[in-house]
Simulated assay, not measured.
Amino acid sequence: MNTESNNPLQPGTMSNSLIQALIDNYRQNHLNAINTALGIQDAHSIWFDLPKLKNFIAKIEEEAAKVNPAATGDDLGIRFYYATYPKQENWSIMDSHPVPTEYAGRHTLVMVPTLKKANETGELIDYDFNPFQSAEGKSLALNAPGVNMSAKGMGEDDDTSLGENNGVLIPPKAPFGESF
């Protein structure tokens, strides 16, 4: 029985063999290249507990509703950005977001909300957006047509955004419980 994730009748399902093939592709190519080039043992996975993910989703919905009540669940999403923690010598940038220092230089994910908005041709695009920065009661879809991306134009001196990244990296944590 083939139950791949691209089957619209069975969303959220993938065969174990496809999961393993995709993970193996990453580890044998990208991860191996990163580890060799940087001389480190980079993280190959990140774990988030379900309450953290649910709370982040609820916070997106709550904050989006405050600045744009017309936005529906179908308009909202989450974009996962690949990211890297700073090197140990630059760790002070993490002061406002405490993370174990053994994560220095390793991969992570940063999740940011997205909002559907029509571009110049009317095509609906999932734009990154920050519900903490709004104009005339509308949440800004960052990089959308007519949106000023400069920090001063989006929130004056406020550098706060809605995002999440505080998961458990493996390694440095032991891979106990991993199947792939």
Rank of each mutant, 00 (worst) to 15 (best):
L22W: 00
N25K: 15
Y26P: 01
R27L: 11
N29S: 15
N29H: 12
L31T: 02
N32K: 15
N32M: 10
A33P: 00
I34D: 03
D42E: 09
S45A: 13
W47Y: 14
E61S: 10
E61A: 13
E61G: 02
E62S: 09
E63V: 02
P69S: 06
D74H: 11
I78C: 05
I78A: 05
F80E: 06
K87E: 15
K87G: 09
K87M: 14
E89M: 11
S92K: 12
P98V: 07
P100M: 08
T101P: 04
T101N: 13
T101R: 14
A104K: 10
V110N: 08
V110R: 14
M111R: 00
V112Y: 02
L115W: 01
K116Y: 06
A118S: 10
N119K: 06
E120C: 04
I125W: 01
Y127D: 03
D128K: 06
D128G: 01
A135S: 13
G137P: 02
G137W: 05
A141L: 00
G146I: 04
V147P: 01
S150D: 05
M154Q: 15
G155L: 06
G155H: 10
G155V: 04
E156P: 00
E156A: 08
E156M: 06
D159K: 10
G163Q: 10
